[in-house]
């Protein structure tokens, strides 16, 4: 059965089973309704991404007996321990070239050195600032816009051709444009992150507003609610879970696309650290950077899940 965090109509909760492919599209599918003609060019990204999300959903959301929790816990850490072991052993036995894949212990030592000399903190902070700025901006702008599009037919009709065009334009393809317009500095990176984050939030918000149970609207109308109160008291709260699905997707994007931008042109940031380490052949540093990014993505997702859970205690199981 679905766990407590199962979204009413968001991404699939079933822990990345084969069936998920279809449900995952939900993040993007509403777009089909928001703006006529689906055909998502981004179809693949959310799938892979959401699979990861689902995995952590299950980790955070399972509320079964203590015993079975323990078993799953051991199970999961066992896989991680195995991975770490393989990473340590294979380079040492020479099965893989230790120059390109150094043993995990060396990577961890390199990570510790980066931590001690303050460089890790510097890059980490640079990335986090850009990521949060773009992500925050996307939340602040895309949610109101999505609400307007979902609620006012004329706004939707007016904007949908443009939205449809941009939605199908990959953010990555637009990075050179952002750099041309905003330069190589912080602005272009933040705009880039903002652009990538805005879509899942916008599309999910639109769908959240559009898919409110008509009977609830009817019931509220029967109690004499006008359009404004109806929106405030029914549409908004009903849309919250779907909006959160978009926010979580955007959270993952914010880190993914930023790393890319930092690899293309930056003087600081985790993406820069990885790229620079590779160019100067500090391979352990490169892996240290990669591990840090994974950890960051994981933490961010858990944080958003926590917030989401606080806001949707009423969700049915």
């Amino acid at each position: 059965m679905a766990d407590t965090l199962t979204p009413a109509r968001g991404a699939g909760p079933s822990g990345g089973t084969a069936g998920d492919g279809g449900e995952n599209a939900d993040g993007t599918r509403p777009a089909g309704r928001a703006v006529p003609g689906t055909g998502s060019a981004r179809g693949d990204a959310p799938t892979a991404d959401d699979r990861a999300t689902n995995f952590f959903r299950t980790v955070a959301g399972t509320r079964t007996s203590v015993a079975s929790r323990l078993v799953t816990g051991v199970n999961r850490s066992l896989a991680l321990v195995l991975l770490a072991g393989v990473w340590e052993v294979l380079p040492r036995t020479g099965a893989v070239d230790p120059v390109f894949v150094p043993p995990l212990s060396e990577v961890l030592l390199a990570w510790y050195d980066l931590l001690l000399d303050g460089r890790l903190a510097e890059h980490f902070q640079a990335s986090l600032t850009r990521s949060f700025s773009g992500f925050g901006l996307a939340i602040v702008l895309a949610i109101p816009l999505g609400l307007a599009i979902g609620w006012y037919r004329p706004v939707a009709d007016f904007l949908s051709p443009v939205l449809e065009l941009f939605r199908n334009t990959s953010a990555v393809a637009l990075l050179p444009v952002f750099i041309l317009i905003f330069g190589l500095g912080e602005t272009s990176k933040i705009v880039f992150v903002f652009y990538a984050c805005a879509w899942p939030i916008l599309l999910n918000t639109v769908s959240g507003v559009r898919t409110v149970e008509p009977l609830l609207v009817k019931s509220a109308r029967s109690m004499g609610l006008g359009p404004v109160r109806l929106f405030q008291k029914v549409i908004l709260p009903a849309a919250v879970p779907t909006v959160f699905t978009g926010i979580r997707l955007a959270g993952a994007y914010s880190i993914l696309v930023l790393i890319f931008a930092e690899m293309v042109g930056a003087k600081a940031g985790l993406g820069y650290l990885i790229q620079d380490s590779q160019f100067s052949f500090r391979i352990p540093d490169m892996y240290a950077g990669i591990i840090t990014i994974s950890a960051l993505g994981l933490l961010f997702n858990l944080l958003l899940l926590g917030v989401e859970r606080r806001f949707s205690t009423w969700r049915t199981t």
Partner: peptide, 20 residues
């Protein structure tokens, strides 16, 4: 000429607000 609080409706599907 429109809905009003002088009439209350009860639907088969309850129509309760799930977030309340």
């Amino acid at each position: 000429d429109g809905p009003g609080l002088d009439r209350g409706i009860v639907f088969q599907q309850y129509a309760l607000f799930p977030w309340r």
